[in-house]
Each structure stands twice: as C-alpha cells, then as structure tokens.
Amino acid sequence: MDLRKLGNSGTVVSALCLGTMTFGSDADEATSFALMDDYVEAGGNFLDTADVYTNGTSEEIIGRWLKSKGGMADRLVIASKGRFPTLEGSNGLGLSRKHLGHALDASLRRLGVEQIDLYQMHAWDALTPIEETLRFLDDSVRNGKIAYYGFSNFLGWQLTKAVWIAKAQGYTPPVTLQPQYNLLVRDIEHEIVPAVLDAGMGLLPWSPLAGGWLSGKYKRDEMPSGATRLGENPKRGMEAYEKRNANPQTWAVIDAVMQIAEQRGVSAAQVSLAWLVQKPAVTSVILGARKREQLADNMAAGDLSLSAEEVARLDEASKPQIGDYPYGAGGINQRHRKLEGGR
C-alpha cells in the first residue's frame, strides 16, 4: 500500500486508515479484532479512534488487541482524540488543560500504550483560549505522552490561527486536520483545504463514502432497506437522507461513480475512495467498515489509480455549489487571478 508522510512530520502512514468508531457498537470485539488483523495483513499501519467512540470501548478493544499482538503498537501509528464530554461536571469536556490532562491519561490507559502517536483535538472550543490548548499539546509532546498532534472539524480561520500562534510561541506545530470530505461534501475546498496546504499539514478525511451513499447502496426515491446503515436503523438520519435524496447533484455524482465502476470492473466504493486518495493534501483516508467484507472491498481502492479523465468527470459532477462572491466567477479572487495572468 502507498505510504505517505503524516502531514509535515517524518512519520509515514498508509494511504488508507482504519477508523474504529464502529468498535464495540456495530462491530463486536471479535469482529473488531478480525478487522484489525485483516487491515494490517493488507499493508495498513494507521488506526484512528477517539475517547468518545462507544464511550471509550473502542480504545479498550484496540488496547486488548495490541496486548494480544505483542509489539504491534511499535509497528503502527495510533491516533486518538479528545474534546467531548468524558467526565461529569462543567470541566469534563473542552480543550482546557484540565480536561485534556484527564482525557489524554485515560486514553493512554485504555489503549495500553505509553505514547499516542497522533492526538487530535476533536473540535474547536470557543471557551478555552487556543494558547492554553497549544501549550498543553506542546508540553505533552515534550514529556513523551504524544508524538504529534492535529485537529478535527476546525474551520479554516481556526486552523490558521492555531498554526500561527504555535509558530509565534515556538510550540510544536500541528501536523494534520481531520475533516468530513467526500464526493458529496466538498465545501472544505473553499477555505479549509487551502489553509491546510498553506500550513504544510495533511488531511485525514472522515466519512469518505458519505455514510454509504457513495457505495451505491441507496436508490433514488426508494427508502433504504436491508444491510445498510439507514436500512437497519431508518430513524437515524432520515432527515439528512430526504434532503440528500432531493438534491439532483447527489444522483449525478452517484451516476458518474457507478459508470466508472462498471467500466473498470470495480466497486463504486473503490472509485469514490480512489478519487479522494488522489486529492491534494490528503494523507490518509479513514475507512469506517463494520464488516470484514466491507473492509476488504475498501482496501482494494489502494491499488486503483483513476485516470485524469475519470477524475475530471467526478470533479465536474460533484463541483461544489457556490455563489458569485467571493468564490464565484464574478468574485474578487477570480478577478485577481485574471489580472495576475491566472498564476
């Protein structure tokens, strides 16, 4: 499998990461162990979890699997996250030094490791000064509890502010951002992707198949059924389903994906993942499989290289809808590009 630098660090990770949000919920412990076994056997070396995934059970399952494998932790890059509520009380959440101190130590215990390779802030905290968070993260790197840190679900200005404060204070810089990104969700290309590229960081996209939509499982104007997330739990996300189903662009994208998949003799999921793997700034795409068969199919995307023409077809079908200002054809940024000769 293709290996890439973890953002601006010297550590390398596989282009496909195994997300573990399903561990302890949609996937029981035996299935979770099998998923990790299959992933590593296929050449993957990057696991992503969080302290709130199944109330810490995901980290515990990974910890027990690592213990059963001896020195496996040294061979893998393990990422977790902190920010959301894990303790009762007003200080049981957020990006304060107090909460993150508890959260990081608890994640280390559950995982059974002395150091977390990539510790990510799960979302922005408007109450805590970002300087406090960055100082805590720098201290945690220096004392060996984490090797690197990154962010998740940050906006462009939030990311850039954090990057430049870290630089000004001489703190260890962040290496990655984990946002939602897929053929149906491309709005991050307006501000967030440029901010990531400007900082020399890497993207770790989550929900690369848009909750199953880009695997071709859902049909136009047909209620989800069977072995799909919405089919098994129709009350979960039906409002989002109805909104996405009513958007003509959704089906234009899915049609383009299905056509390329048929021409290539591969699955729709593989085409959707391969498109994302090839996008600028993407370091590793986070897979969210619940079953071994899903993971095997998704992992095959690592060997699929889309042609420039295929990428262009998908880009055109999924082009983000934007207004005229400031991003559109009449926007100030486009006018400046013309004045500068398109450079």
Rank of each mutant, 00 (worst) to 15 (best):
G7N: 01
S9G: 08
G10F: 11
S14Y: 15
S14Q: 15
L18W: 00
M21K: 14
A27R: 07
E41A: 14
E41Q: 13
N45E: 09
Y53S: 00
T54L: 00
G56I: 02
E59D: 11
I62V: 07
L66H: 13
K69M: 01
G71V: 12
A73E: 04
V77D: 03
G82N: 00
T86H: 01
E88Q: 05
S96Y: 08
G101Y: 04
A103C: 03
L104P: 09
R110S: 04
V113H: 09
V113I: 10
E114H: 13
I116H: 12
D117H: 09
L118T: 08
W124M: 05
A126D: 14
L134W: 15
R135W: 03
R142I: 03
N143K: 03
S152R: 06
F154T: 03
L155S: 11
Q158S: 09
Q158A: 07
I165F: 03
Q169N: 06
G170W: 07
L177N: 11
Y181V: 09
R186L: 00
I188F: 00
I192C: 07
I192M: 01
L197T: 10
M201L: 08
W206L: 04
S207P: 04
G212Y: 13
S215H: 02
P224Y: 14
P234H: 02
P234Q: 04
E239D: 05
A240S: 12
R244Y: 02
N245Q: 04
A246G: 04
A252H: 06
V253T: 02
M258L: 11
Q259G: 00
Q259L: 10
G265T: 12
Q270G: 06
S272R: 08
L276C: 15
V277H: 08
V282I: 03
V282H: 06
V285Q: 13
I286R: 05
A289W: 03
E293S: 01
N298M: 11
L304K: 14
S305C: 13
L306C: 08
G323I: 06
G323E: 04
D324R: 07
Y327D: 04
G328K: 13
A329P: 15
R335F: 13
H336E: 04
R343K: 13
